[in-house]
């Protein structure tokens, strides 16, 4: 059982529980299950709290960018707006269209939600505070983000709605296309660090400098691809409001829609955390505690994504593909090549 050695409190807690288990004569696999559950609960709690804040932030930021106030009525500065909305959405009737493929329709939001949480398995919050330091961390992240495609396809296909279908097709094409430059951008970072483990990448950045300075091109490619992966403006084609009504989630309402919404923001948070780790040195930084640094850097990326969202118009389907295959991919390849030469020297 791996657990961080450097942070003492969780370690002591773990040792104490282990002692308790041996004293009571309980099997140790039960302990492993307990620890896993606690970690999962902590991570999901972290995600939920942050998502609530993120949605509020997006609306507030969007409001002020657009000379509006944003939410103001619920709680101080409207902070509880998301809570109110969530409550509203949860008590709504669960509508499943008659034309829908029932089981697929019901499963799709969950299939979308699970990978967005799974990413957090390898995210290093602070030195040693990590659910599991996989030695193939970055590969794992790429694999997990790739899992969103089937969920969106399921949602679009099963809705029995033409707009949903179009949205799902767009989502499929878009996510697959942008996965490639995203991974190539990550690859350059991995080459610099010499490891796939996210912890090692942070340590490599502590030794040299933040990779954003060594990899400006890579960062730009990552930023664009990540925003495309997140289906956010200017790449929000799968749910392009003005074109496809609401794209793949046209027919979703109530808590199923809420789960999609939650997934979207959990993914944003996840991608931001990964970006902070890969390019901004993760939790490393002076003066402030590592966890604060981690949050700050994550939210810097979140702010960037929101800022872009409220500035740019949306691309068209073919332009989206062109941008990925004809521009980002070559740039990413050149970047990888350059990094290779740099590392070899």
């Amino acid at each position: 059982m791996y657990l961080a050695a450097t942070s003492s409190l969780p370690l002591r807690l773990y040792q104490w529980t282990e002692q308790l288990f041996t004293d009571l004569g309980l099997p140790l696999w039960l302990l492993a299950v307990l620890v896993a559950t606690v970690k999962a609960a902590l991570i999901i709690g972290f995600i939920l709290i942050n998502v609530i804040f993120l949605i509020w932030l997006e609306r507030k930021l969007g409001g002020h960018i657009q000379n509006r106030l944003g939410p103001v009525y619920t709680g101080p500065f409207g902070l509880l707006q998301t809570v109110a909305d969530a409550l509203k959405v949860l008590v709504k009737e669960d509508i499943i269209p008659a034309a829908a493929d029932r089981w697929v329709f019901m499963a799709a939001p969950l299939v979308a939600f699970v990978p967005s949480v799974m990413i957090w398995l390898v995210v290093p919050f602070a030195p040693g505070v990590q659910a599991r330091d996989l030695n193939i961390g970055t590969l794992y992240v790429a694999a997990m983000t790739g899992c969103t495609v089937p969920a969106l396809l399921m949602a679009g296909w099963s809705s029995g709605n033409k707009w949903s279908l179009l949205g799902a097709f767009r989502a499929g094409a878009q996510l697959v296309s942008y996965e490639v430059p995203l991974i190539l951008a990550t690859l350059a970072v991995v080459m610099l660090a010499g490891s796939l483990s996210l912890n090692d990448i942070i340590r490599a950045q502590q030794e040299s400098t933040w990779f954003i300075f060594l990899q400006p091109l890579g960062f730009v490619v990552y930023l664009i691809s990540a925003i495309a992966e997140l289906n956010r403006t200017p790449f929000d084609l799968p749910e392009a409001e003005s074109e496809l009504v609401a794209g793949f989630n046209t027919e979703y309402s109530g808590f199923r829609f809420a789960i999609f919404f939650l997934t979207e923001y959990a993914n944003l948070l996840g991608s931001s955390a990964i970006a902070a780790t890969l390019f901004l040195g993760g939790w490393s930084g002076p003066f402030l505690p590592p966890f604060v640094w981690f949050l700050l850097k994550t939210y810097l990326f979140v702010f960037l994504a929101m800022w872009i969202r409220f500035t740019l118009p949306r691309l068209r389907v073919d332009q989206l593909m062109n941008l990925s295959w004809k521009f980002l991919l070559p740039v990413a390849l050149i970047n990888v090549l350059g990094t290779g030469v740099f590392v070899a020297l």
């Binding site: 657009q66 000379n67 509006r68 409001e241």
Partner: peptide, 16 residues
């Protein structure tokens, strides 16, 4: 028109 193209902000500025 901005809204049709997916940019929400011009809409609000124009209304302002």
């Amino acid at each position: 028109f901005g809204l049709d193209l997916g940019a929400t902000t011009p809409f609000l500025y124009a209304f302002r």
